[in-house]
Structures are given as C-alpha cells and as structure tokens.
C-alpha cells in the first residue's frame, strides 16, 4: 500500500519534472484544481477578512506611528530644502515618479486581489490572485502594484492566476539603471520580509551603480513577460564579485511582498500596441 503510494508520488514527480521542456501532462489537472480551489480561496479570504485583519491592525498601529515620525522628519527636511531652494538630491526620485506616472497612463491593467500565498515551507514565492483567463489574464503577463513591479503570471485558470514574485530565488528580471541606462539582471533572494533584497548584476562590468539609483524593468519584445519602465527598487549597496568580475548591487524592492493586497495585471501597453501595428517587427 505505502510502496504503491510512494511509487505514485514518484510517477507524478517525473511526469511533472519535464514540464520545462514541453508542457506537463499535469498542466490541465493543475488548471482544473485551480478553477475549483481558486474561488474557494477567494471566498475564504473575503469571509474571514475581519479575522485576518486583526494581526494587521496591531502591525498598523506601530507602523503608523513609525510612518508618522518618518513623515514628520521628511516634512521638516523638505521644508528646509525648499528654503534653500536646492532640491537637487531629490530630483532623481521625482523624475522616477514622473516616469512612472507617464507609464501608468499607457498601460491597460486588470485589478486583482491577492487571495492566497505560498508557504515558506514550499520554498517558492508565489501568490494566487482572483482574476484569470476570463478577465483576459494569461501566463507571462506583468503584475504591478502602486509601488512597483510585483512579478509575473505563471499559471492561469478561468478565475484565478498564480503569480511568481520577483523576490523568488528562481525569478530573473531584466533591469535597467534609471540613471545610466545600463542593463542588468535582477534575481530574488527568497526573503519576503522587509529584509528581502534583490540582486542586480550588470552586463557591463566597468559600470558601478550608485547608491540610491532607481532600477526599472528593461522590458522584452512585445512586453512579455515584463513591460518596460516599471520601477523595481533602489540600489542600496554595491559589492564586487571577484570570481565573475561583475558588480553586484543589492536592490531594495519598492514593493512590500509580505503585505501584498491589491495588484494589477498589465494586459496591454503602448509598446505592445505599436508592436502589434508594426507586425512585431518594430525592432
């Protein structure tokens, strides 16, 4: 009996392990389970929201106090800067904000709510959201929230989708330094907490990123899986890796992955529309 079950588990494992190459026979099963359990997760989340908000409430009191303090400090600082009328230091950040605004206006998005989160015991950083193929969501679409890049859709059923967060160690995003336009690759470290950092390794190893530089997505052809120009995070520290001769920058993500709630799936962008018009031969 047990031998049989172990054998069955191993069979499922081998069947599914080859999915990287040519789709897994379990994909349809996965989508099926998703269409049944997705709405169930959705319902459970909304029904028990008052209960699940309790820990958040306590966190929020402390957080609000901290934020109040931080805002006060920022306010004082800004007033001072306004007086000396030399806000050069903050120009980068503001430019980033303008970029973002311009971008947001050009994106077609589907709003979604996070209804389930993978456990740390599973060693992968994924969440499920309450929109699916019915809402026009498909694998490889970019997911953002108000703060920046969240991840990309890896799996969709009719009413739910699974999102791979960029903090997942298996996720790689093409990134661009906001200031020098240098290209690089951003990998996650798997830590969902506020201590979680992304690693940016630049293609050109002679360039050294500056602290505070904003990193945005570089974007791929047709805007999949990541549309261009979405803010990812800011460079916190830089160290060089002697083995690879590349500079590795630690990037603090703009998005707080442990408290994801409302996100948006990008279903279309100006880039993509132009591409479609040009028959995909724009570049």
């Amino acid at each position: 009996m047990v031998g049989l079950l172990v054998l069955a588990s191993l069979t499922v494992l081998t069947l599914d392990a080859r999915r990287e190459d040519d789709g897994s026979p379990l994909d349809s099963l996965r989508t099926g389970v998703g269409s049944v359990l997705g709405p169930a997760q959705d319902g459970a989340t909304s029904a028990l929201r008052p209960l699940t908000d309790i820990p958040k409430h306590f966190e929020q009191v402390a957080e609000l106090r901290d934020r109040n303090q931080a805002l006060q400090a920022a306010n004082d600082q800004l007033t001072q800067q306004l007086r000396v009328a030399g806000a050069n230091a903050h120009r980068d950040a503001e430019l980033g904000g303008v970029d973002r605004l311009a971008n947001t206006e050009d994106l077609d998005v589907v709003k979604a709510e996070v209804v389930g989160m993978g456990a740390a015991q599973s060693f992968s950083r994924t969440v499920s959201i309450d929109v699916g193929t019915r809402d026009g969501v498909a694998p490889d679409l970019t997911v953002i929230n108000a703060d920046g890049l969240v991840g990309r859709v890896v799996e969709s059923s009719a009413t739910t989708s699974t999102v791979l967060l960029i903090i997942d160690p298996g996720s790689t995003v093409g990134g661009r330094l906001g200031e020098s336009m240098e290209l690089g690759f951003i990998d996650g470290d798997g830590d969902l907490s506020a201590a979680g950092r992304l690693e940016l390794s630049l293609v050109d190893h002679t360039v050294s990123p500056r602290e505070g530089d904003v990193v945005v997505t570089w974007g791929s052809r047709g805007g999949a899986p990541y549309v261009a120009g979405i803010p990812v995070g800011s460079v916190e520290s830089v160290h060089s890796s002697p083995a690879e001769l590349t500079q590795i920058a630690e990037v603090r993500p703009f998005v707080d992955f442990s408290s994801l709630d409302v996100v948006a799936v990008v279903t279309g962008s100006a880039d993509r529309r132009t591409d479609d018009l040009a028959g995909g031969a724009a570049w």
Binding site: S9, R30, M117, G118, S124, L164
Partner: peptide, 18 residues
C-alpha cells in the same frame, strides 16, 4: 501540489506526506 499558488514540481508534497 496542484492548488494555486503552488509552482513547484507536483508530487513533492504528496511524497512527503505519504
């Protein structure tokens, strides 16, 4: 293994829990 947001190779939790 199959319920969203699982993204790992299916069968791993099945084997563990057996």
């Amino acid at each position: 293994d199959l319920a969203p947001p699982a993204d790992h190779t299916a069968g791993r939790w099945a084997l563990s829990l057996v």
